[in-house]
Design a protein around this nucleic acid. Structure first.
Lengths: 357, 357
DNA sequence: TGTTAACACGAAAACGTTTTCGTTGCGAAT
DNA sequence: ATTCGCAACGAAAACGTTTTCGTGTTAACA
């Protein structure tokens, strides 16, 4: 087993100085052709590759970006990671991922662990607990230390940084209008509690669409799921709530659900109650994941383009990182003006499938 | 904006030496109580945290493990990552992920990018193209440089390293026997091409189970899907193949599919052909993902316990890493004996749902 | 008073790079 | 013969730590 070879070892072997080796390998014309040849040949033979850690220390940048997300076993988040990784790799960066598991504390621990030199910047989506607590000091702290952050999807106006979001509001409006225009008269909304900003926005979109089309909203038609209970592992709870919901609202003929799971569960319950989809009731979900695609009937959804969000977030972050080294002075002064931060909105798109007419 | 403070700055501020600061912060009793107090207070005030990169360089270890997987938008792989991250975090490690995208070249590029000091060891699952080419030199190279590798799920006997696998063979046997014992007489197999080891093993398990129960295998009942075509985005192809398959085999009354997607698609096609599940035909899939859980009817599957695999892999890797520093000499000699490598088998479990009786 | 031991601290090396700034030797120009 | 310039290379600093090995001061002891 041969450990990785270093400049020092090459230098010793070839009886030259470390500087000479370094220069020869970077084709500096300070070094004679002879020596360069000899050194390069030797280096190739021993498969020399510069040590990244040493480079990071010297350059004070790691060429690594930190991703901090609430959960990885989740189609949307993994598509975002894929987008980030794609761009990062293309632009010469690595990605290191931390999972907050929706916990405030884990989010902080993870940030501190990574912020101490391991990465050049963050791409993150805020955990539910943090949103609930509304405590964003750790974000401010990292930004203050000169480490850029890009937030995506679950963002918050209190923190000044670049953001990539989806037009949740407009997406919801489009979805609900589509239901109305396809003949739905009484459209139910299945949503989460309001503290998750995206849920709130989608709810507002639902209301807006109704109003626009001159339909009066009926609070009976809104089902708010308490996501403090672990719904993913207790599907019965979800199904029971929805069954009740359908029984109370017999005339319901359309459903807009703020996520995939709610939508497919609603379809399942509806079918069980003898309703035909899309004839008796049409359904649209939010977040185009694997469930929507393979459900029977397949589900019409509002796609968030997770991968594109990831790509944009990565580009934003890397752009900023590389702006920092070129025009260092200018950056810092500009940075004071919060107007400098970019809020990028990814357009949603309705993917039509079998659950709507 | 305050950049992160360093030992040197603290030393200058407090008019002591760098060594003194370092020692005071680690509570060395070489330093007087007074000085220690003063330094610690100052450090806390300015929120001093040692720079990870500098530590990595000094200690010649990064406390980071590299994950290299074919694809992240995949329920199984993301559960594995979750498991790895859980253990890694608990034991003080970070994880950095690379995606090979099933490509041989990207796998190599990624390995080389990470192997130059960025990480202490790898946890990986081999890309399809690599399996097809049977070219494993990059794995040998990294291992030879003293960097440990743990492989999971898609492993290969040619590489000497720790491995975590699922008993694909036994899992398949159990599944097929369950179908037989539930009354199935003619059981179809939907599988992939043989070069993916796990697909092969599951196919062998299918055959073994039939033989054990005294059923003669019928090659008409085996459908091999060519996964070189992008099936994920051309569901019709898959559905057409399966429709043909069902039409040719009218008497089929059970299906064992080597993955989730094949299984739910088979159910969809079967239902479309007027078959009742599980009365007319029973279905079992492999890999317990989100699709199986939420399909209608929900799908009985063989669970691979991805998270547990990740946890075990992480523990194996970290154990080996920490063994290296303690008993460095002993390790190297032991390492020569390949018998030292652990192959850990995670038991599969059949999750019974509605698609079987 | 001279020796010693403990105490409190600093200097310097090391990890692996890159880069700036010498330094040496030598041929050419004056 | 002296100066100049250039070619080819080396020394050393720097990035931020930790750790080993001094070193100076003081107090205790013979």
């Amino acid at each position: 087993m041969k450990r990785k070879i270093t400049l020092k070892q090459i230098a010793r072997e070839l009886d030259v100085s470390i500087s000479t080796v370094s220069k020869a390998l970077s084709n500096s014309k300070e070094i004679s052709e002879d020596t360069t040849q000899k050194i390069q040949a030797f280096a190739k033979l021993y498969n020399y590759k510069p040590n990244n850690i040493a480079l990071s220390l010297k350059n004070r940048k790691t060429k690594t970006i930190g991703i901090l997300i609430p959960e990885i076993v989740h189609h949307f988040f993994s598509t975002v990671i894929r987008g980030i990784e794609l761009i990062a790799n293309r632009r010469g960066y690595n990605v290191i991922v931390g999972l907050s598991n929706e916990s405030f504390t884990k989010e902080i621990i993870n940030m501190e662990m990574l912020a101490n030199g391991s990465i050049d910047g963050f791409i993150l989506s805020i955990s539910k607990e943090t949103l609930l607590k509304q405590d964003y000091h750790h974000f401010h702290a990292t930004i203050n230390q000169g480490m850029p952050i890009v937030m995506f999807d679950r963002v918050v106006s209190e923190v000044d940084c670049d953001k990539v979001i989806v037009d949740d509001f407009t997406g919801a409006v489009k979805a609900v209008k589509k239901l109305i225009d396809s003949g739905c008269k009484r459209i139910g909304l299945i949503t989460t509690m309001d503290y998750v900003s995206v849920g709130k926005l989608r709810t507002q979109g639902y209301l807006e669409a109704l109003e626009d089309r001159g339909v009066v909203a009926d609070s009976n038609l809104i089902l708010k799921i308490d996501d403090s209970l672990d719904v993913e592992n207790h599907l019965e709870i979800l199904e029971n709530e929805m069954t009740q919901f359908f029984k109370v609202n017999e005339t319901i003929d359309g459903i807009f659900a703020v996520n995939e799971l709610y939508a497919v569960t609603a379809m399942k319950v509806a079918k069980r109650l003898g309703l035909q989809i899309p004839n008796d009731i049409q359904v649209i979900g939010f977040t185009d994941g694997v469930l929507s695609k393979h459900a029977t009937p397949s589900l019409t959804t509002v796609s968030q383009h997770g991968q594109k969000m990831g790509e944009q977030a990565a580009n934003l972050l890397i752009d900023r990182l590389e702006a920092i080294d070129t025009e260092s002075e200018q950056y810092f002064t500009n940075n004071e003006r919060k107007s400098d931060f970019i809020k990028m909105v990814i357009e949603t798109e309705i993917i039509e499938r079998e659950s709507t007419k």
